[in-house]
Design a protein around this nucleic acid. Structure first.
Lengths: 192, 192
DNA sequence: ATTTAAATGTTGACATTGCACACATGGTTG
DNA sequence: CAACCATGTGTGCAATGTCAACATTTAAAT
């Protein structure tokens, strides 16, 4: 191995992503990351000004990936598209619980750490808004679009956490809301 | 001040609650708590086996309070009751952002720390289920009740985070979902 | 090509933290 | 009064984030 790692920044992010999904955000130390990648404890500071900044970069990566998943459903139309987005969202959360938690589990702090994070999360929300605009056939600038998107995001986020968290594990898995359940509620309300 | 504090346990919890709403969960150290209350750094260990356990107890307290807020709306009926619950939920989150984040921001770990936490969070969910059962006029044991409650909780949780987090601060405050908005969606779906 | 500057990685050190141990204190009970 | 035990104190240790000084490699400039 050379003195220079090659692409330490990417290696750290990759390792962090594994670790965060395995041990959760709590069991993630900068020193441990460095050791796992095979560099000295302080090497990460050449690529991230702080641990927060690394976590912020990881979050941004997560938002970008989620936005990408949305994009794959963009060719569908009507309710199918809605269900596609919901499935993509729930699927992402289920497959990357630690990362998902990281993305939404902290407040503004990381935003000021990494402007890219703000950019990516906004892009993600914009993608949601374009979904709403398309489903309702509204102009993107219509005031009702962001309002609707916020509610859809609310439902997604809550359902994703229900799925990830053991906080409500007493609710059997087959009773947790599915993408179709959410879509039905959005379209026609919640009914018995 | 006497050698014995009197009710150190309660004092610690109270102080922790202030600190968590002020500085967030990150800026909360056992040692700092002890200092703020005026005892030695290790005194808390006589009342909580670990930091996690203290946080778990605080969470449990939060769930109990939230359940209490639900109870004050129990005399209302129909949609009014639904709106009451939603307002209570959003109000609690807005008034105690740090605590709310603590309650929902961690996975199962605290549950195993403090059985009371599991008990309280379950009681909270049961309260939500009884709301659903009443609004829909269903038997409490009906399978559709927990499913509906899970969806309502999803919406509440997402909306609460939208309100608390600056992660989507770019959404103007007056466009964020209100309790009435959520109620309308639940009753009749999300419409433009 | 040689020199020089910038980028990257290493080492040592320090403050903070959660936590474990042994010990001190003081109210309670026989 | 004496013994006990819950409660609080002190010391100490390992892990962690971060800073400062130094080493090495690569790239740029002359």
């Amino acid at each position: 191995m050379t003195y220079h790692h090659g692409d330490l920044r990417a290696a750290l992010l990759s390792q962090a992503r594994c670790a965060v999904d395995a041990d959760g955000e709590a069991g993630l130390s900068l020193r441990g990351l460095a050791a796992a990648v095979g560099v000295s404890p302080n090497a990460p500071y050449r690529h991230f000004p702080s641990k927060e900044a690394l976590l912020a970069a990881l979050s941004a990566q997560g938002f970008a990936e989620l936005t990408g998943r949305f994009a794959t459903c963009s060719d569908q139309v009507g309710t199918d598209r809605l269900i596609g987005y919901l499935s993509a969202y729930l699927g992402f959360a289920r497959e990357n619980p630690g990362l998902y938690r990281l993305m939404f589990g902290r407040s503004l702090a990381p935003l000021s750490c990494d402007p890219a994070l703000g950019e990516q999360s906004q892009a993600c929300f914009r993608s949601l808004m374009s979904l709403i605009a398309a489903v309702w056939d509204l102009d993107e600038t219509d005031d009702r679009v962001p309002r609707g998107a916020a509610q859809v995001w609310s439902m997604c986020h809550g359902a994703a956490l229900l799925d990830i968290d053991q906080a409500i594990a007493f609710l059997p898995e087959d009773r947790r809301p599915t993408a179709s359940d959410l879509a039905a509620t959005i379209v026609g309300g919640l009914r018995p």
